[in-house]
């Protein structure tokens, strides 16, 4: 199988790799580039654990072919902390016990991040809707919803 070049920006730094044609972005990120923050839960689009942000939109990296991302701006949870300081969403997830086994967490955080990027003060319904493509088998969801609402409040207080 012929290798094809893929080139994109991952969390602000340029990445270039050769992958087999048809390789999913999830596979390229985890096994080629070494960013293991997106998780492979189902490879069917059902669990959301592989969620990443591509050009500002939430996408499932398990159903996205790496070759279609040439030139894209890709964001993952591993790029959120700055100089060792956790992002407000990461902080809120830890404080609210919104992460147990942690497998769903990077996907949940990506889904929450696009919500907060567009909606400074989301309602509870908006948070539930934003997380509706992400499955968690541990927490029962409530702590996750609370963590996102807390991070939104922290963000808007910082902005004020």
């Amino acid at each position: 199988m012929a290798k094809v070049p893929v080139q994109f920006t991952l969390n602000g730094s340029e990445k270039a790799e050769f992958v087999d044609s048809g390789t999913t972005l999830l596979h390229a990120l985890r096994d080629k580039i070494g960013d293991t923050s997106p998780k492979g839960g189902c490879h069917q689009g059902t669990c959301g654990a592989c969620s990443v942000i591509i050009d500002g939109e939430l996408r499932l990296s398990c159903l996205t072919l790496a070759e279609t991302c040439n030139g894209a701006d890709i964001r993952t949870t591993s790029g959120l902390a700055e100089a060792g300081v956790l992002h407000p969403l990461q902080r809120a997830f830890l404080d609210a016990f919104a992460t147990q086994c942690g497998f769903c967490t990077p996907g949940m955080i990506m889904a929450a991040k696009v919500l907060l990027d567009h909606t400074a003060n989301p309602s509870r319904e908006e948070v539930v809707e934003a997380l509706s493509g992400n499955i968690c088998r541990c927490t029962g969801y409530e702590p996750i919803i609370q963590a996102v609402l807390t991070a939104a409040r922290a963000n808007s207080q910082n902005a004020a």
């Binding site: 689009g45 959301g48 969620s51 939109e57 939430l58 996408r59 499932l60 159903l63 996205t64 889904a111 696009v114 809707e129 934003a130 509706s132 493509g133 992400n134």
Partner: peptide, 9 residues
């Protein structure tokens, strides 16, 4: 149709 990520695709 689906959740937010599915609708983006």
């Amino acid at each position: 149709v689906g959740g937010p990520a599915i609708r983006n695709m």
